[in-house]
Design a protein around this nucleic acid. Sequence first.
DNA 1: TATGAATGAGTCTTCATTCAT
DNA 2: GATGAATGAAGACTCATTCAT
Lengths: 181, 181, 181, 181
Amino acid sequence: MVAARDPEGRRRAIIEAAGQLIAEVGVGKLTHRLVAERAGVPLGSTTYYFSSLEDLIDETIAYVGEQFLQAMRSLSEGIACSDDVAASLAELIAGQMRCVKQPVLMVEMYLAATHRPELRPIARRWFEEMVDLLSARISRPAALAITVYVDGVMIQAMLHDEPPLGQEALADSLRALLTLR
Amino acid sequence: MVAARDPEGRRRAIIEAAGQLIAEVGVGKLTHRLVAERAGVPLGSTTYYFSSLEDLIDETIAYVGEQFLQAMRSLSEGIACSDDVAASLAELIAGQMRCVKQPVLMVEMYLAATHRPELRPIARRWFEEMVDLLSARISRPAALAITVYVDGVMIQAMLHDEPPLGQEALADSLRALLTLR
Amino acid sequence: MVAARDPEGRRRAIIEAAGQLIAEVGVGKLTHRLVAERAGVPLGSTTYYFSSLEDLIDETIAYVGEQFLQAMRSLSEGIACSDDVAASLAELIAGQMRCVKQPVLMVEMYLAATHRPELRPIARRWFEEMVDLLSARISRPAALAITVYVDGVMIQAMLHDEPPLGQEALADSLRALLTLR
Amino acid sequence: MVAARDPEGRRRAIIEAAGQLIAEVGVGKLTHRLVAERAGVPLGSTTYYFSSLEDLIDETIAYVGEQFLQAMRSLSEGIACSDDVAASLAELIAGQMRCVKQPVLMVEMYLAATHRPELRPIARRWFEEMVDLLSARISRPAALAITVYVDGVMIQAMLHDEPPLGQEALADSLRALLTLR
DNA sequence: TATGAATGAGTCTTCATTCAT
DNA sequence: GATGAATGAAGACTCATTCAT
């Protein structure tokens, strides 16, 4: 339950609840009532703070993308000073996949962007920033290939409780892709 | 407009309409009305042939997965006798991505499987058959990595009208992954 | 499953199925499909033999009333030569209440007659014939009171798996009512 | 037309409209639309206040049973100090039967309870309270028999605009049953 | 400012009924 | 004559959104 008289806190709580729920039930099944209940705010708040459900979804998606990017950014610093880039990356990625919700949310974001062109910039930006981030240490073609690969890993993570690709195998794949120039 | 008194034709027409629409608007926005209109059948037919919307979605997803697999199977025969496996694969994949609907449908299928566990077997089967298919010619680790990678390519294809990764670059990545033992 | 090419048999089978189902689920929940399945006839038969569902219900109700009356008539002969009329009647009534379906059907019939005046004659006729039947042996006021009482017994039978009024008590009540002149 | 912003009033209005309509058309033909129109509230209100039609029916039935019981209770006080119990009772009962809706509603309640076991307690409670009420003045066997008899009277009242059993005859029957020990 | 009561558009679904075969 | 495929009208129900308070 978020305190009333804390507009920012409420917005945030609503968006976070929406994020959780999108991961659980999918964008298509998100409703105001569901969000309000999860966020512990009155029903009215969800329409008071967001002009429509679509608006709430958009903001949630933007927020989620940003979150994921932040996580990547802060974690990538560790890679910078690592001498086994592939192993460090594999660890980082495996870490992000630990909780299924992350990849599900990302894929929901991708799909939402596909169906609603106005959301595409957000999804693309995620892709580009990821490539840029990696490019700092590795060749651009490798960065591109790895970013693509990571999206594939997300899908696998969504479907399998235990990833079919262990962290070891993941590192091997990355190592292979790192040879790209 | 599908002829009346042609049960099989109608079922098929409805499923195909549903497939198209899922690719266009997403599973979450699929409605009987939308499907009926697209398929050119009366509203009642959609419930006459499928006991519920969920049932229709399930059958559509199974159908789509099977379609994709068939395509892969028939195309993969070409690879068998190729001497540049990576190039052939890249061509095959790029071909499948030509029409955006294919990858979108696949990803919708993945997401649906995430939210509705009873669909997981279908999604997993796709993954496994793909790996098996590739394993005929290449090492299993490479087959796994490539299958994962292809999922990543799908997501990129969904987001970009022009794939950010040309067929050339795709072939290079595959070549790199093919080195895995 | 009733043989095709036996119109009378089918009509009968459909009506009997309808009777059973009305007792089980109520007139309001009767559907063609339900009846067809129970009767073991194709769906089309239910509309082929009866011009509408309402028509089927009407005929079923008439049939049920007639059945009940027949049962009463044939059984009442036994009473004629009995020297303890009340005891014989109590036995007869208790026998009819043994299977809950009988009273439920009767009450559904009464209620249908209430909501659809065209059915009233059937229900009233049942009442009158019952009174006449009893009048043969007992005074008219007693016959009237007992007929009314029997309807009350039906309602009790519907609600209680074990009738709250044993056959003994029932006989006592009847005996009391038989004193009426 | 019931004022908006008066939740209690609305609930009540909806339940009362449902009660009237059940008496008129039967439980099986009750629809949200019918209730909304009769109650003078928008369609949405009927689902806003009651989670389902079944729920509305249940509450209506409980309400009706309670109403009838209340009426009986308050009226029965008059009997307590009467010296001709049978005559007083007959008057009371005849009064309740004056408006056909009362008995119809009661019988619909009985039937609903038959088809939906969760409603049985309500129907049984009515029976038991009635017996208890009468037992205060008369022997239990008589109370039981009279309660049963009253149910029969209800059915007669439903079917005949003019009761076939005048208040006089009714009193006679009750008098006969009162002799039970 | 904030809320939750209220509404009606739109959904899935059922089913009586029709009618081609 | 008989059937079961087909349809659309109508019902229950959900929920985004509005708005009085």
